[in-house]
Design a protein around this nucleic acid. Sequence first.
DNA 1: CCTGTCAACTGGTATTACCAGTTATATAAG
DNA 2: CTTATATAACTGGTAATACCAGTTGACAGG
Lengths: 260, 260
Amino acid sequence: MLLVVFLPSFWYNFLMKERDTNTGFKPIAPRKIYQYILEQFVHLVSTGALQPGDKIPSERELAESFAVSRPSVREALRVLEIIGLIDIQPGGGAYLKEMELGPFISVVAPLLFSREQFDIELLELRELIEIRAIELLPAKMSQEALEPLALAITEMRRALQEDDTEAGALADIEFHRSLLLASESFILQKVLELIVSLFEHAVRGGRSLVLEKHEDAAQLLADHEGIYQALLDNNYALAKTLLASHLQMVKVLHAQDSAK
Amino acid sequence: MLLVVFLPSFWYNFLMKERDTNTGFKPIAPRKIYQYILEQFVHLVSTGALQPGDKIPSERELAESFAVSRPSVREALRVLEIIGLIDIQPGGGAYLKEMELGPFISVVAPLLFSREQFDIELLELRELIEIRAIELLPAKMSQEALEPLALAITEMRRALQEDDTEAGALADIEFHRSLLLASESFILQKVLELIVSLFEHAVRGGRSLVLEKHEDAAQLLADHEGIYQALLDNNYALAKTLLASHLQMVKVLHAQDSAK
DNA sequence: CCTGTCAACTGGTATTACCAGTTATATAAG
DNA sequence: CTTATATAACTGGTAATACCAGTTGACAGG
């Protein structure tokens, strides 16, 4: 029993903590004020009491309503801004919007891209999501849902003719985004939105996830047109195959790009 | 041309914005101080200059180093806390940790679960991810990588015998998490971590994404054992099939649960 | 009717102060 | 000399206040 006397304080604390849980006591994590404010906001949004577009009262008003100081309110608003739930205009005010993952991604992106192989894994995840999305299409596909695809194609064709690389890349992204939108799966849309945000930040970071060579862009366009036509013909099996090989090619091109 | 006069302000603003871009001017978005601080932190982490476990200087020191006020530093730390990059101990200090999606999810979860069909879509995404993960296994599977799976199984068996529902659910999650870990795909791991976090919050929100009936739990355990055995035998095709039907059953059980 | 000015907002930042925890050191008791 | 306690020096959390800079809208002058 003498050993107990010499236990370092770390172990002492650890054992005491253990004893507490054994007696049914759970550690108390003091909640911060901004978390209470956050909670109320999120609750109002999730119940629909606050709609996108609504203006949020000024920080001073909120501080008074919640009976807290302005810094506490600001911390809550900061979090809402990062998760992309509000838009803050200095001098203007804060407005609710549909949740967007962009702001969050813009913070996290550098951390992710510092990983080895991350861009390849990202492409593979995109492949997984998009192919799944096209599998979900047949049940509820309508003619109007295909329109955005057609728009994205014509835009990409225009960009190609005018050699507008940036517009072409945007139209490329838009095509795939529209494809996901048609799937009507909220969560798949959000995941792809996340992937797309990462792509955009990768480009800004100097990585070539977007193709710039003319012939490559032409091939992408041709692929898109093939997929679109297959969807028009209600030939979903073909569309799926074409999409798969399309994404496969993107992966190969990217691998070549990274190699050189 | 008279029509132009009657354009709603929305369109006027839109056109003005368009004109600006046409003339080559881009809107100026003033950056806030906390963003600069964030940037420096993220950069230090992504380059490895700051490692998980490192202690971050106190807010007052940081404020002095950056030559800004403490509130600005606090806003940056608040964001780092939400994206799960640091752990803040009141009275203690702030410590870097491996990035975790938990804190972010805990804020966003209520927003997502207010969507119709979200839990079903979540299960389907999980299915997609896990099956993909098992496809990635064969190339680099080692015997030691399977150990966590065995541990999770014995733990679940113990929980089942003692009728410890909570421990059983945790062991269930742990089994699937280990499976993902073995895939060595960083991004798939992160996506599953995200899904698991959502599951946990769903449970707290009173939703029954975790099964509580004894016979169901027994079936889950049996499935896990089957998958584990298949992996031991290097029979990956069988493991994949078993996992697919396992997840299918989970979906069915959940659907029954929601119905009643 | 157009236009420029001014006043009343807004959020962004800084400063200061105090409270409540933690940690480490020093001091007193054994 | 060891141990335990108390004190002092941290830490982050919150508050109150002030000022700056940008936006907005109303009002007065052209």
